[in-house]
């Protein structure tokens, strides 16, 4: 669903993700409404039967230039400012979400994607397929790779995911606050078993 209430969010980085998404969404929505509103106003205001303007397009006559550089630079300025401030604003968030947390209380779990399932290897060497258990309140790092082809390891309730690339490691982390069962699913087409390439994340 588009938005979730704060109680439905099971932990980080989903909180951060939603805050950024909401920023993008509200800005995007506002800009969309203004721009499209302007468009519809112009169409309403300058319709043939209401407009008193002259017709300047004549057959066989190359139209003259209209509009001025100042207005265009205004367009440029507005779009550039909005876009670049969003980017600059999200640089610290990017490193927050992307930097792999380190420390003694961080649990690192190896994840190996394969056609079609997920294998998890805990720090103590025990393995499990299709299910991974993590404690509440701890930060868990998933070190992801693939046995065969490109997969995408996604924990949608935590708003995070990363590609599982054969021959390479990629990392994501979660920090769950809410006990419960969550879905881990492959988000990159990987053959006939793709739709059912799911695993359970058990927090608690």
């Amino acid at each position: 669903m588009l938005f979730k209430t704060i109680l439905e969010i099971p932990g980080e980085p989903a909180f951060t993700w939603y805050s950024l998404f909401q920023l993008y969404f509200s800005l995007g929505f506002a800009i969309g409404v203004v721009v499209l509103g302007l468009m519809f106003y112009f169409i309403y205001r300058y319709r043939e039967d209401r407009s008193t303007e002259s017709e300047d397009i004549k057959p066989g006559r190359i139209p003259t230039e209209r509009g001025n550089l100042k207005v265009i630079l205004g367009f440029l300025g507005i779009t550039a400012i909005v876009l670049y401030s969003l980017t600059i604003y999200s640089i610290p968030l990017t490193s927050y979400i992307e930097d792999v947390p380190e420390g003694d209380d961080v649990i690192v779990i190896d994840v190996i994607g394969f056609q079609w399932g997920w294998r998890f290897i805990y720090p103590n060497g025990t393995e499990s397929v299709g299910e991974v258990k993590v404690p509440v309140g701890k930060t868990v790092v998933f070190r992801v790779t693939s046995l065969d082809i490109l997969h995408n390891f996604k924990i949608r309730d935590f708003r995070t995911g990363v590609d599982a690339v054969p021959g390479a490691y990629t990392y994501i982390w979660i920090s769950p606050h809410e006990p419960g069962e969550y879905i881990i699913q492959c988000y990159e087409l990987c053959g006939v078993g793709h739709a059912n390439m799911v695993a359970k994340l058990i927090v608690g």
Partner: peptide
């Protein structure tokens, strides 16, 4: 506008795929 979301690296962690 919805494409701008894709350019954000943090948002992309979810919305890819």
């Amino acid at each position: 506008i919805t494409g701008v979301f894709n350019s954000s690296i943090p948002l992309n962690h979810l919305i890819r795929g």
